[in-house]
Design a protein around this nucleic acid. Sequence first.
DNA 1: CACCCCACCTGCGTGC
DNA 2: TGCACGCAGGTGGGGT
Length: 318
Amino acid sequence: MPELPEVEVIRQGLAPRLVGRRFLAVHKGEKKLRRESSLLRLQRLVVGRRLTALKRRGKYLLFQLEGGATLVIHLGMTGRLLLWRATLVPLADGQVEDSGHKGCEPSPPFSLRAVEMAAAADDVELHKFLFPHVHLRFQVEGDFWLLYQDVRRFGQVLACAPGEVPEALGRMGREPFSRRVKPEWLLEMGRRRKCPLKNFLLDGRTITGIGNIYASEIMFAAQLSPTLPVSRLTLRDWQRIIMATRRILRLAIRRGGTTVNDYLNCEGKAGLFQFELMVYGRAGEPCKKCGALIERLVQAGRSTFYCPWCQKNQAIND
DNA sequence: CACCCCACCTGCGTGC
DNA sequence: TGCACGCAGGTGGGGT
């Protein structure tokens, strides 16, 4: 689900509300995530600690805790981090009075009062009913609950001891906004590879954070064909890719991310960038620039969307 | 090492 | 209406 912009939007939403606060408790459901720490480990390393900073690396969120431990969360395809504050006051007609921060809505028709009671009484069954697919609940100082919800359970929640870093973070490429991402460097990285541009952008070992939606959008913005072998890209092509990447990701963050199917921010709200997508998910529809029909192809097992006219430089090379 | 394919899951839309 | 199938934002392990 979430790519760099969505993860960043969640980080920006959570940070001001959680940094400085202490984790008071953690509860775990019985279904396992792709990778997760044991309840015991989470309790030992996270519970009782104050959050000193909330950082992002690629699509990973890093909850840095006092004492040096880190809670690492990856949302996989359908992961959500929802912040819910237990101080909402339900009104007589079922509406909810906004007490500053609204938090995520429980599934209707249950009232927030019921949720509050479920949390207060630690009623697991009721909570499961109100928030399906919530696999972890962190209680935070100040009546906050941080819920980890994940329908497909491809996500990761790892408690790391001080100095410990998940292997995946070590293998990760550079941040798209890093000054170390330069055309010369990408030219060098691309020269050794034979894969098409799309696969290169998706493979986070060079530049991290670009997923399937933004890869297509970036290649459209840079006017480059997804099938171009990276070894053939010029310095100018790489420059265009860098500019396009930063422009698209920055705009997507400003729009609160892309909600194609079920992405929601920490308040349970959808993003808006889906209305500005130029190619992703638009196979058969006219290109917003030239009117040619957007095409879909499969690369590395994933859909790629592109405009055969605006991005036809592949044909020249063939 | 580079690359491909699949596995990991659930849910939803489509077409028969 | 029911069922089978394809497809969905990501990673990572195994094979070639």
